[in-house]
Amino acid sequence: MARRVGVIGVGNTPYTSAKRETRERSEIGRACIKNAIDFVGNGLTLSDIDAVYYTTVDGFEGTQRPDRTMDCLAKGTNAPVYFVNTGGTSGGSTIKDAYRAVASGLYDIVVVYGAGSLIATKNAQQILNSASPPLIESKSGIGAIHIGGFYLNKYKSDYGITDLDFATVAAKSHKHAKNNPFAHIRKGYTVDEVLASPMLVSPIRMLEVCPVSSGACSMILVSEEKAKELSETPVWIKAASSITNSFTTAYREFKGFEMLEVLANRIYEKAGIKNPLEEIDYAEVFNPFAGFELLEYEALGFCGKGEAPHILHDGITDLGGKLPVNLSGSTLCTNSGVAASLTRQAETCLQLMGKVEGGRQVENARLGLAHTWGGNMGQFDTLTLFERD
């Protein structure tokens, strides 16, 4: 029988622009892991770690040997190092793999971490654009933001969604990022400022697009026995799953995130969730473009099709609402590639532990959902449900 698995530690580093980064990837990796171990306390040391799970997208870092990041951490501990690369969903995939390793009894204490610096690549965006299908899209210069525009223009056409709706959800992230000490973009841009920012690819404006960030995030996963020994506020992994779609665009109508909806229904059934809006207390969703958050509300069953702006404007997904979403400031304000997808898990756990800084804490949150999204067209999704006793 699978063992219960808990999250007992979270570590972050402050994020900055990849072009302004002065720290090496190994340096921010060490820092976030140290912060997670210090978070736990109770005598936990690096030598207690049974295994390390490292989330990476090699191409973004301009290296084929990301394992060298861990040399200084693994020496002398005999801890095996695993590498997980599923693009933008790497953080969620790594949590899933580490969870299964602990649940199976293979390990008792593992570290999961991602350290994205992007300093070794001249232009990470060009690398990301190469993920477009090579037959037509890649050769014509179509990248992630263009495909994001396809989704959002279709959304506007089908349901009468407005630029104000997109700007409002962007301003919500910017408002909360201002109070997040680890966030990259902390300007607190308003709705009017978002609407006044330049249009990049219709209907996406400059302040509705995520930055290229540098920073690191780590989490410590343990068996139930170790969780009770080391932590007073463990958060348990209730369910974790993923889904993959086709790489091609030819057949797509860009009518929302259909595969995410399939995945959500699967994980809700496994967890016994009947009404996500009523039962989930907090969610972190992956929104490299602000409007994606609205599409994700609908795919995750928080509301019906075309109804996401209503729950947004009613404050349901803001602090103090029935189901707050992305109070970290989200991917929109901090996007270090793989660490950004791991951060969705970490922020959710911090909310359930009651240890969020900056006045962003949700009162008495007990069930949380973390989402990651990968590929220029959202070919990959992961979902993790966390709960506390």
Score class of each variant (00 low, 15 high):
A2G: 08
R3Q: 14
R4A: 12
V5E: 03
G9T: 09
V10R: 05
Y15L: 02
R20K: 15
R20E: 15
R23C: 08
R23I: 06
R23N: 11
R25L: 11
I28W: 05
C32A: 09
K34C: 10
K34Y: 04
I49C: 02
V57S: 09
R68V: 15
N78L: 14
P80L: 12
T86G: 10
T89R: 02
T89V: 15
G91M: 06
G92Q: 01
G92F: 11
S93K: 13
A98W: 03
R100A: 13
V102H: 07
Y107D: 04
L118R: 10
N123Q: 08
N123W: 03
I127Q: 06
L128M: 15
N129C: 02
N129W: 05
S130G: 09
L135W: 11
K139I: 05
A144D: 05
A144H: 09
K154D: 01
G160D: 04
T162V: 06
L164G: 07
F166I: 06
K172F: 00
K172H: 05
S173F: 00
K175H: 07
R186C: 12
Y189N: 13
V191R: 09
E193H: 09
M199N: 11
M199T: 06
I204L: 15
M219Y: 08
A227W: 01
K228Q: 14
S231W: 03
I237Y: 08
A239V: 10
S242G: 12
T244M: 13
N245T: 14
S246E: 14
F247V: 08
T249H: 10
Y251I: 13
A264I: 07
I280F: 02
F292P: 00
E293D: 06
A299N: 03
H310W: 04
H313T: 11
D314M: 12
D314Q: 15
G321L: 01
K322W: 01
V325G: 02
G329M: 09
A346M: 11
E347P: 02
L352Q: 04
R360L: 04
R360I: 09
Q361V: 03
V362I: 07
L369V: 07
T372H: 00
W373M: 13
G375P: 08
L383T: 00
T384K: 04
R388V: 12
R388N: 10
